[in-house]
């Protein structure tokens, strides 16, 4: 089954535009030099609203932990069950994390601690989402 489709809003539009160009960008606070994801109206760390700017990041990370969704509540994903839901930390700043279904990794066979790199997956015509694949 296809994944659920994100609906960009005013704040997130630049992020999803970049994803659709197969780029990963995050907010960076110029006031405290902290990356931020998901995007917010102000910096989570220092509160600055004026210092946030979009910056390209290297799409490298590691798998911190995972679960397997066996009985979730999302209608559109029912037929996918069971499937992995991994927590990926960004190498550039491990306090920033992302979810991933780890495409190609069978349920329960997740190599925790392994390196991953960002990839992109189409969930609707013209709409990509960021995913992560294990680096061989």
């Amino acid at each position: 089954m296809p994944k659920i489709i994100p609906v960009p809003d005013e704040l997130s539009q630049p992020f999803w535009d970049a994803v659709n160009e197969q780029r990963l960008i995050l907010q960076n606070c110029t006031a405290c030099d902290k990356l931020q994801y998901p995007p917010q109206a102000s910096c989570q760390a220092c509160g600055s609203a004026d210092g946030l700017e979009w910056t390209d990041v290297e799409g490298n990370g590691h798998i911190a932990a995972y679960i397997v969704i066996e009985d979730g509540r999302l209608n559109r994903r029912m037929l996918d069950q069971p499937y992995n839901l991994a927590l990926v930390t960004l190498d550039q700043d491990p306090t920033v994390n992302f979810y991933s279904n780890l495409p190609g990794v069978p349920a329960y066979e997740v190599p925790v601690g392994a390196a991953v790199e960002v990839t992109f997956e189409e969930v609707a015509p013209g709409q990509l989402i960021h995913e992560w694949r294990v680096v061989e």
């Binding site: 659920i4 998901p38 994903r77 839901l85 979810y99």
Partner: peptide, 9 residues
């Protein structure tokens, strides 16, 4: 939009 596409409802 930051959680549900990957299954976190």
């Amino acid at each position: 939009q930051w959680t549900v596409p990957w299954g976190n409802h």
